[in-house]
Every structure is written in structure tokens, then in C-alpha cells.
Computed example of a mutant assay.
Amino acid sequence: MNRPSRADERDFFCQRFQDLLTGRFVKGIVHNMNGPMQILSMQIELFKRDAGQELAAIEALAESEDPAGAIRALVDRAKGRMAKLAQMEESLRRLEDMINVIGKRSQDMEDGVRPSLLNQILQDELLFWQGDLFFKHQVEKEVVLGPDVPAVVAEERAIRNLVDALLACCAELLREAQERKLHLESACDGGCTHLTVRHTGPPFPAGDEAEAEDGDEPPSIPSMAIRLARRWAELAGATLEITPREIRCTFPPAEG
């Protein structure tokens, strides 16, 4: 039986990390979906009540001595229904967004090189990370999305997993910090697309620590996350520049 190559082992490890991350967030994701579900359930019950009241009002309209007043009352009720409908649509949109973000993680390991919108990926990832209740409630997030950021030509899955690894590293480091702030920024400069991640926690693992694979002690979560980020950056055709509390990821211009 042939031993898997080092690259195959890395890909397997990367995939298991993503599966673990999704499983770890299940409780938080269910918690986040519960709010919109409760709103939908409540509004459906109110719709049922309003429908019964309006049916009775319409039946009484024919016998009303003030039909104009009865019609105005019906109009007011209809306006109230429209407001409830807007709340239901917003709740449904939130549920759809969460389901879509989770669904994108069921793609195959390779989903093909194609233009991908970095800003949309960042928004999706931040929504997914709301499943981490520490990240959601205790990390102060500043997100600056550049208005003219072009599409990045790469495997979308590689970009998503790169962002996941960077956020996993920052979230773990911020658990040890008094001031828990995270800054994410996308920008375009000289044809290249940049993603900058900055935090106020302890420094990112140094190069030797992040690359170490042997020894009695297992690597820390930040070290593993940095190694994964480098792997996904390589697959996405990007480069990483790591300083103590900032990582700058650069995607090259699209060819042609």
C-alpha cells in the first residue's frame, strides 16, 4: 500500500480542520438561527389572528352604518400586516444567509479556479464565525471593505479556508488578551488585492514555532492555524507577510 504524499497529508489535515470548525460552531449556529425562527413563528400566529379579525370586519362591513370608517380600519390593519411581513422577510433572509454559508462548506476539496469576490467571502466568513459565541460577543470587530476591490482569481474554497485559518488564529490569541479588538480590511493597490488582519492579542507565532512539526509537545492552535493559512494561501496563489500583530495577504492581479 502506497504511503500518502506529504501534500496529500496536508490536504487531509486541512479538510479535517474545516470539518472540526464547522462541527464546533454547530451550537452557536443553531443559537443564531433560533432568533429568526422565533420571529417567524410569532408573526405567523399574528397573521392568523389578524386574518380572522379582518374576515369578521369584512363581514360586518356590509351591515355597517359607517362603511368609510370600517374601510379605514381595514386599511390600518393591512398596513400593520405589511410591517409584520417585512419582519418575516428579514428573518427569512437571515436564515437563508446562514444556510448558504454552511452549504458552501459542503463543496468538494477542489471547486475550480474562478473569479471570487473577496468582500463577499469576508462577509460570509464573519457570518459563519458568529457561531463562535466568544467571537460574536467578546471580540470587537472593525471591518473595512474597499469599494473597488476586484475579483480574485483562485479557488474560492482556498480563499474561504485561508480566512478561516486567520480568524481561528486571531480568536485564539484574543482569548488571552484584555483588549479584544480585531481589524479586517480589504483593499486594492497596484493591481494586487490585499487582505489585512490585525488584532490586539499576543503576537502571532514566530516562523520557527509555526513551522515546527516534530517534538513531544503538540503545536498550539495559533501555530496550527498559521501553518494552515500558509497552505491555503499557497493554493490560492497568494503571499503572506506576517508581523507580530498583523498579517497582510496579497493576491496577484488577474492575468489578461
Rank of each mutant, 00 (worst) to 15 (best):
P115N: 08
Q87I: 05
R105D: 14
P115I: 02
K84Q: 06
R81D: 06
R105S: 12
L117K: 06
K84E: 05
K84R: 06
R93T: 09
A83G: 11
L118H: 01
M88L: 14
R94K: 13
E89P: 10
G80T: 00
D111A: 10
A83W: 10
S116L: 01
Q87F: 03
V113L: 08
Q123G: 06
D97V: 07
N100D: 15
L92G: 12
S91Y: 02
L85E: 08
A83M: 12
R94G: 09
L95M: 06
L122D: 00
E90K: 02
A78N: 12
R81H: 08
L118R: 00
K79H: 05
D108V: 07
A86C: 05
S91W: 02
S91D: 06
R93C: 04
Q120Y: 01
A78C: 09
D108G: 09
L117S: 08
N119T: 05
S116W: 00
R105Y: 12
Q87P: 02
L122T: 00
R114T: 03
I121F: 10
M109S: 10
A86E: 08
I121S: 09
D97Y: 06
M109G: 07
G112H: 00
M109Q: 12
L117T: 05
L95E: 05
K79L: 04
S91C: 04
N100W: 15
L122V: 12
E96N: 12
A86M: 09
M109T: 11
E110V: 12
N100K: 14
R81N: 10
R114K: 13
G103S: 12
G80K: 00
A83V: 13
V113T: 09
L118W: 01
D108Q: 05
M88F: 13
Q107K: 05
Q120G: 03
S91P: 03
I121E: 15
G112N: 01
V101A: 00
R105C: 10
R105F: 12
S91E: 07
L85F: 10
R94V: 06
Q107L: 11
M88C: 15
A78R: 14
D111I: 07
G112Q: 01
E110P: 05
V113K: 07
E89M: 14
S91M: 03
I99A: 07
A83L: 10
K79T: 04
K79D: 04
Q107T: 11
I102P: 07
N100V: 11
A86L: 09
E89G: 08
I102W: 08
K79P: 01
K104S: 11
R94D: 10
G112V: 02
